[in-house]
Computed example of a mutant assay.
Amino acid sequence: MRISEILRRKGSGVVTIAPDATVRELLRVLSAHNVGAVVVSADDVSIAGIVSERDIVRRLHTHGADLLDAPVSSIMTAAVHTCAPDDDVETLNARMTEHRIRHLPVLRDGRMIGVISIGDVVKSQISELETEREALVRYIHG
């Protein structure tokens, strides 16, 4: 299965936040969109970084409540891994596992067209396994 198929099923919306937005604003965006990570972008096109719930929790431990007024750019991951719509889900799963990445922006011709999470990848693999199991059961009983 290709990443484009996952995006077709889940949608291609990309939630972004400006690098100078506060962590407090980030929390509001994460909650409002019910997502675990947001792409950091000044123009909704280019990628400055990515920031997740995990980034907030790790920094809260060391910075305390003052972190809430800090800019998102101070906690984001600047080196963002990305993928393409034609990438294979199995290959992407291995890459996400190897690099311990939970969210990847999907780029087509340098433009963001979606975000894939490890949950999306696992869900697609489970769906493929269920389809294969059903085919085997039909074969055995048929």
Results as ranks from 00 to 15, higher is better:
Thr62Ile: 12
Asp109Ala: 15
Ile6Trp: 02
Ala135Leu: 11
His99Phe: 07
Ile56Cys: 06
Glu132Trp: 08
Asp87Asn: 15
Ser124Leu: 04
Thr77Ser: 14
Ser31Asp: 08
Ile6Phe: 07
Glu98Tyr: 08
Ala37Lys: 09
Leu30Thr: 09
Ser74Thr: 08
Gly11Trp: 03
Arg95Phe: 14
Val80Cys: 03
Ile3Cys: 09
Asp120Phe: 00
Ala32Asp: 14
His33Cys: 02
Gly11Glu: 06
Pro71Lys: 06
Leu136Ala: 14
Ile101Leu: 04
Ala65Cys: 00
Thr91Gly: 11
Arg8Gln: 13
Leu136Phe: 15
Thr82Pro: 04
Val14Thr: 04
Val15Ser: 02
Arg54Met: 12
Arg133Gly: 01
Gln125Glu: 09
Val45Tyr: 03
Leu30Glu: 09
Arg95Asp: 08
Arg133Lys: 15
Ala65Val: 12
Val137Gly: 07
Thr91Asp: 15
Leu68Cys: 06
Ala79Met: 05
Gly36Pro: 00
Ser52Trp: 05
Met112Trp: 13
Ala65Gly: 10
Ser117Asp: 09
Lys10Asp: 13
Ile116Met: 04
Gly114Ala: 11
Gly49His: 08
Ala70Gly: 07
Leu26Tyr: 06
Asp69Val: 03
Ala135Lys: 11
Thr22Met: 04
Val80Trp: 11
Ser46Gly: 14
Ile3Asp: 07
Ala32Gly: 15
Glu98Met: 05
Ile47Gln: 03
Gly110Leu: 00
Ser46Glu: 10
Ile50Gly: 12
Thr131Arg: 15
Ile17Lys: 02
Leu136Ile: 13
Ser4Gln: 13
Arg111Asp: 03
Pro85Gln: 12
Ile116Trp: 03
Leu67Ser: 06
Val15Asn: 02
Ile56Arg: 10
Val80Pro: 08
Leu104His: 08
Ser124Cys: 10
Ile126Arg: 13
Ala48Ile: 00
Gly110Ile: 01
Thr77Lys: 07
Leu27Arg: 06
